[in-house]
């Protein structure tokens, strides 16, 4: 079951194609990374999903229902360009946004109080938004995004501008909501965060999908058969049929093995040469490497 199904979406702006025949699915209950360099079309696509703009052609299904018929409160969206009404008080602002999402006044109040307690920010109740720091405002924005318990939460660069403490706080909330059944789309170009948080990703570039799948599978797919060996590297034979040394130091060597050779064969060969092995690990490419690799090519 997919929470979101993107089918052949096209979006043409005046001079360029922002989204080019895009299709992918977001599995229900996943934390899904929507990746791409600046200007790849991430925000354009998200704006179509959130119905801020319309696609030229194609379909989007939310929980199996066409997005245009779906309940707007099923989606929570935190835009990258963040803004709140500066002169409004925190509590009033959240109340307003909750009601716009379709919550009753009573529901909204209880939800807001819940979040005030959770983040321990009850004393911000009557502060104006402009009195809060940027990071604090971002917390408010996060609450506004998720307080109506949407089944799909879309976060566009949610951690920019947050200190490590608050980053963790928000991250924990993302995990918690995910455990409680919400699906999360996480749009970013910060690869280390994706690697940490997301199980599935799609990578888009210049409006087109270039890569899709589980993070683990993608890493396998792009692995360069490189291994890191902690050992007395001097004993490794300089010339060998099954592998070549990429780099080496006194107690570590990076080697790349030929296609079809198993790690066991390497280990056997090394042991024959009296190499004392303290550690042996396959080096998988980071998403960052894959990202740069793909985007540059």
């Amino acid at each position: 079951m997919n929470v979101l199904s993107i089918q052949n979406i096209n979006k043409q702006y005046k001079n360029h194609k922002a989204v080019d025949n895009m299709s992918f699915d977001v599995p229900k209950g996943s934390i899904f990374g929507l990746l791409g360099p600046n200007g790849a079309g991430k925000t354009s696509l998200i704006r179509i999903i959130t119905r801020i703009t319309g696609a030229d052609s194609g379909n989007i299904l939310l929980n199996g229902i066409n997005i245009n018929q779906a309940e707007i409160r099923e989606v929570g969206y935190m835009p990258e360009e963040r803004g709140l009404y500066k002169k409004m008080k925190v509590y009033e602002h959240l109340l307003y946004l909750a009601q716009l999402k379709g919550l009753s006044k009573k529901e909204s109040k209880s939800v807001i109080n819940h979040w005030f307690e959770k983040f321990d920010i009850g004393h911000w109740h009557s502060k104006k938004i402009e009195e809060l720091s940027k990071g604090m405002q971002q917390k408010i924005q996060f609450i506004a995004t998720v307080m109506h318990k949407p089944s799909l939460i879309i976060l566009d660069e949610p951690f920019t501008g947050l200190d490590p403490l608050n980053t963790n706080l928000i991250k924990e909330e993302i995990y918690r909501m995910n455990r409680e059944g919400a699906s999360i789309i996480f749009s970013t170009h910060r690869m280390e965060q994706v690697e940490e948080i997301c199980k599935d990703i799609v990578l888009i570039n210049a409006g087109s999908k270039v890569l899709e799948g589980k993070v683990a599978d993608i890493k396998q797919q792009f692995k360069s058969h490189t291994f890191s060996i902690d050992c007395n590297a001097a004993n490794i034979p300089k010339v060998c049929s099954s592998f070549k040394i990429v780099s080496s130091s006194e107690d570590n060597a990076i080697i790349q093995i030929e296609e079809g050779i198993t790690p066991n064969q390497i280990l056997a060969e090394l042991m024959e040469n009296n190499v004392q092995i303290a550690g042996f690990e396959e080096r998988l490419p980071s998403l960052n490497d894959i990202f740069i690799n793909i985007v540059e090519s």
Partner: peptide, 15 residues
């Protein structure tokens, strides 16, 4: 103001 404040994107994801 709404446009400059960039609140508009948040708003029109709801209305």
């Amino acid at each position: 103001e709404e446009k400059i404040n960039r609140i508009v994107e948040l708003m029109i994801s709801s209305v």
